Simulated assay, not measured.
Amino acid sequence: MSTNDQDLCLVFIPALVTLLYKAEKDKGSPLTENEVIKIRDSATCMAVQFSAALEMEEKRGYPDIVAEEAWSEWQAARKELFGEQQP
């Protein structure tokens, strides 16, 4: 898949990974797939040009989760954020 500057992508404000991290910390146990999807679906996002999204990610210093792959990407991210232990 090739992307050009005119392609749009969704950018969560704040980053979806931070919303999920906070929700899991507050819950005190792993989020379910339904919880992740509910958080994703209610999160604020905007469509921006691909180049702007890359610039925002670079300034933020870490990648966000892709909306369409929220559950699987959150599973990978949480292993990095929490290790194998519970929050």
Rank of each mutant, 00 (worst) to 15 (best):
L8A: 08
L8G: 01
C9Q: 15
L10V: 06
V11D: 13
F12S: 04
P14S: 12
P14E: 12
A15G: 00
A15L: 07
T18G: 03
T18D: 15
L19D: 03
L19Q: 15
L20E: 03
Y21I: 01
K22T: 08
A23V: 01
E24V: 06
E24W: 06
E24M: 04
K25W: 08
K27G: 00
G28I: 01
G28R: 05
G28H: 00
S29D: 06
T32F: 09
T32M: 11
E33S: 14
E33R: 10
E35S: 08
V36L: 09
I37S: 09
I39C: 11
D41R: 05
D41S: 09
A43N: 04
C45R: 12
M46Y: 05
V48N: 03
V48D: 02
V48F: 00
Q49N: 15
F50E: 09
S51G: 05
A52E: 13
A52G: 01
L54T: 02
M56I: 05
E57H: 07
E58S: 08
E58L: 00
R60K: 12
G61V: 05
Y62E: 09
I65E: 03
I65S: 02
I65A: 06
V66Q: 10
E68D: 15
E68W: 06
W71M: 08
S72R: 10
E73F: 01
Q75A: 12
Q75R: 11
A76E: 13
A76Y: 14
R78Q: 06
R78A: 07
R78Y: 05
E80S: 12
E80C: 07
E80G: 09
F82E: 03
